[in-house]
């Protein structure tokens, strides 16, 4: 696997066909519908902001799209494969190899150093320790946090930690990055920098980004937006750029 930030051919082509689609998703948590017929599509290399008020179901949509949570109804198709038809192990493998994740917090393993955290998903795909850490370094550089490579998450600032998280999400050169309020715990300056680096790096490697946020200025980093309201999606723009 190529682990340095590559220039992806998909980015140049602007392939219009969606890589990840969801139709009529339905998901009920403890009697309350979190998703009630949500549709979604994202093309390769595209960044889509998922917006909506708190409790509208945007995180649930992300979890269903990423195959973390099975939907009660409806289908999620990634690269022509129905996620529901995959076994749990296959879905895990998919998340390991094809997807990347950035969350608001609680994602870095506190006892591993930053470079080890970035190398973690690579190691999970079977790469040796040394190779994984060597491959992780360029990503730390790309996210401008290579100076804290050997510190632990508890010893770095929130913005730095979030950049490490972005580096980890991108280190496996995923096709889709899922970001759930990636700047939620950051001030606006740090948040914007993280967004810039995230979208920039994703664009360079041709990864699609599903960006869940409630902040319009964060959403403005996306190519288009999808609004979730009461578990239903609404989009005024076509798929693709």
């Amino acid at each position: 696997m190529s682990t340095t930030p590559p220039t992806d051919p998909f980015a140049a082509d602007a392939e219009p066909a969606p890589i990840l689609t969801a139709t009529a998703l339905r998901k009920v948590y403890a009697g309350t519908p979190a998703l009630d017929g949500a549709d979604f599509a994202i093309a390769a290399g595209e960044t889509v902001a998922v917006m909506g008020p708190s409790g509208s179901g945007k995180s649930t949509l992300l979890h269903c799209l990423a195959g973390i949570v099975p939907a009660d109804d409806g289908t999620v198709t990634y690269a022509g494969r129905d996620l529901a038809a995959l076994s749990d192990a296959e879905r895990s493998a998919l998340r390991r190899r094809e997807f990347g994740f950035v969350f608001q917090f609680g994602q870095l393993v506190p006892e591993l150093t930053c470079v080890e955290n970035v190398a973690l998903p690579l190691r999970l795909t079977g790469l040796g320790r040394r190779d994984a850490e060597r491959a992780a370094r360029p990503w730390l550089e790309r996210l401008e946090v290579d100076d804290i490579a050997h510190q632990r998450p508890g010893e770095v600032s929130g913005g730095q930690g979030q950049r490490v998280a972005v580096a980890r999400a991108l280190a496996t050169t995923p096709r889709v990055v899922f970001a759930d309020e990636p700047t939620g715990a950051l001030d606006s300056l740090n948040g914007e920098r993280v967004m810039e680096l995230l979208t920039g790096a994703a664009q360079d490697s041709g990864a699609a980004v599903v960006l869940v946020t409630h902040e319009p200025r964060v959403a403005a980093y996306a190519d288009r937006e999808v609004v979730v309201r009461d578990g239903r999606t609404r989009s005024l723009e076509p798929v693709g750029r």
Binding site: A66, R95, R96, G100, F101, Q107, L108, P110, L120, R168
Partner: peptide, 15 residues
Amino acid sequence: KLLSSLVAFGTRRST
């Protein structure tokens, strides 16, 4: 939280 996010990005439960 950490455990769930590790699982989210594909860490095997056995690991």
